[in-house]
């Protein structure tokens, strides 16, 4: 494993594996530094530090309620509006603290896209769904919007299925198509990071497979963080995997290694299905 200067932290006792930087990419796109999250008195995240490599796929795994979704939502500040939410520590993007007062949350979310557990297209046409992000940015150039819509739909591999009826209501699509539409919607505003919160958990295996293939392709251009409770999926798609348990980061590192030779017994037990 390559050594790395930024990750280890004296306070984090539970993090022992180092986030891996592979040779092609030399920087962390996202970084969490000693992050605690509280909902009222309940501590949902306990002192987690980790770095996420640019143009890679990082998976967060762990039993439900372990805090993986909460942790993911820190990176686009989607927890901000939850009553009783508070946090300590820093979340950095390209080295800058995204919770700094000078940061405009709306601008942040334009470059950190998100795809949700259940497909949640707007009750509008397919076209307007994808165009939404551009429209709220105040873009009026209809030609540019159309180009972006088509390009994004192509990127999310949905275009060939819907090209003849872009005016159709998005809710009439199948679940898998809806989820790819949601991915296209996120891509249309050209984000650099894509957060995916169990994007296939509501889908059938065939649709899930398509989404997984898509995620693989998107890796070329985007930094992707995916939360999943599906172990095989994490193994198939991700480069790095973080295993969270009860708000703690148990183990983090190269997916291959986590799945074949984890350092912690707890990781081993979870991956082999002995609990979770």
């Amino acid at each position: 494993m390559e050594s790395d200067s930024q990750s280890s932290n004296p306070k984090t006792t539970q993090v022992e594996t180092k986030p891996k930087l592979n040779s092609k990419h030399q920087s962390y796109k996202l970084q969490a530094q000693n992050v605690d999250v509280f909902y009222e008195d309940f501590q949902a995240i306990n002192n987690i530090s980790l770095g996420i490599v640019e143009n890679s796929i990082t998976a967060f795994i762990g039993p439900s309620g372990c805090g993986k979704s909460t942790f993911l939502r820190l990176f686009n500040r989607m927890n901000d509006y939850i009553d009783g939410f508070s946090m300590n520590g820093n979340i950095l993007m390209d080295g800058k603290d995204i919770y700094d007062e000078s940061v405009n949350v709306e601008e942040l979310r334009k470059i950190v896209g998100m795809v949700f557990q259940k497909p949640n297209p707007f009750p509008k046409s397919i076209y307007e769904n994808v165009a939404y992000g551009l429209r709220i940015q105040g873009i009026k150039d209809e030609e540019y919007i159309e180009n972006r819509v088509i390009e994004s739909l192509k990127q999310s591999t949905l275009y060939s299925e819907v090209e003849d009826n872009l005016d159709k209501m998005a809710l009439s699509l199948s679940g898998g198509q809806q989820q790819r539409l949601c991915i296209a919607r996120a891509l249309a505003v050209k984000p650099t990071v894509l957060l995916m919160d169990e994007p296939t958990s509501a889908l059938d295996p065939i649709s899930s497979g398509k989404i997984e293939d898509l995620i693989h392709e998107l890796k070329e251009d985007y930094t992707i963080v995916i939360v999943t409770h599906n172990m095989q999926q994490a193994g198939r798609v991700s480069d790095n995997t973080a295993f969270l348990y009860m708000g703690n980061l148990v183990e983090y590192g190269d997916t291959q290694k986590i799945f074949t030779n984890p350092e912690k017994d707890r990781t081993q037990n979870y991956i082999t299905g002995r609990f979770g």
Binding site: R109, G113, M114, G133, A186
Partner: peptide, 14 residues
């Protein structure tokens, strides 16, 4: 549904 609000907010909508 709150999922609609979330989707919009996550797109950077105010």
């Amino acid at each position: 549904p709150s999922t609609i609000k979330e989707a919009s907010v996550a797109m950077g909508a105010s």
